[in-house]
């Protein structure tokens, strides 16, 4: 039991617990799971004087739950790393800890922010919450996520013949 808990969790434990998060957030918080909207709120906070309607017409106080949720997400990861793991948790590979890695993360992160806000949802909001509630736009979104990811995977394979 302790072994199960302190080693990486198998899919049959992790998947249902991610599903449980959706249920908990809905019945305890009255909210639909979603993470990428927090980027918009952080952006509004970072540029409080911006006149861009997408940032200016955004009532962050009314959406504060989203920022509390991602704060919790970070704290939970801290707990998992610090108290619930035998082995150090590997997030990014060693070769990303470099100047070229930082550039990749900036460029890729740009697409993550731009893309999820254009799609109005990410893996949480569309792939988990949207699919679980049988929403057709979310199905198209998820198919598009994989179309983009697999296209990039194919290009990476051709360019450097590798998985880096």
């Amino acid at each position: 039991m302790t072994n199960l808990l302190l080693n990486p969790w198998p899919w049959w434990l992790a998947g249902p617990l991610i599903g449980l998060t959706v249920g908990l957030l809905l019945v305890l918080g009255g909210r639909n799971l979603g993470v990428s909207s927090s980027f918009r709120h952080l952006c509004t906070l970072a540029f409080p004087k911006s006149r861009l309607p997408y940032l200016a017409h955004n009532d962050v106080r009314a959406k504060a739950w989203s920022l509390l949720f991602v704060l919790g997400l970070a704290l939970g990861a801290f707990v998992a790393v610090r108290f619930l793991s035998y082995q150090p948790v590997e997030f990014l590979p060693a070769h990303y800890h470099s100047a070229s890695g930082a550039l990749k993360l900036l460029a890729g992160g740009f697409l993550v922010g731009f893309g999820t806000r254009w799609a109005r949802g990410c893996t949480s909001g569309h792939a988990i919450m949207g699919l679980a509630t049988f929403q057709k736009p979310s199905l198209y979104a998820v198919l598009s996520f994989f179309a983009g990811g697999l296209t990039a995977a194919g290009i990476a394979l051709v360019l450097n013949g590798g998985l880096s």
Binding site: V35, S36, S38, F39, V70, L73, F91, L92, K104, L105, A107, G108, G109, F110, L111, V112, G113, F114, G115, T116, R117, W118, A119, R120, G121, C122, T123, S124, H126, P137, S138, Y140, A141, V142, L143, S144, F145, F146, A147, G148, G149, L150, T151, A152, A153, A156
Partner: peptide
């Protein structure tokens, strides 16, 4: 946007190995 934005996010997801929650 679910098509265009979704595709761009997918590319970013591959590059960073990270989606918004992570």
């Amino acid at each position: 946007g679910v098509f265009y934005g979704g595709f761009l996010f997918g590319v970013g997801w591959f590059i960073t190995g990270t989606c918004p929650g992570p």
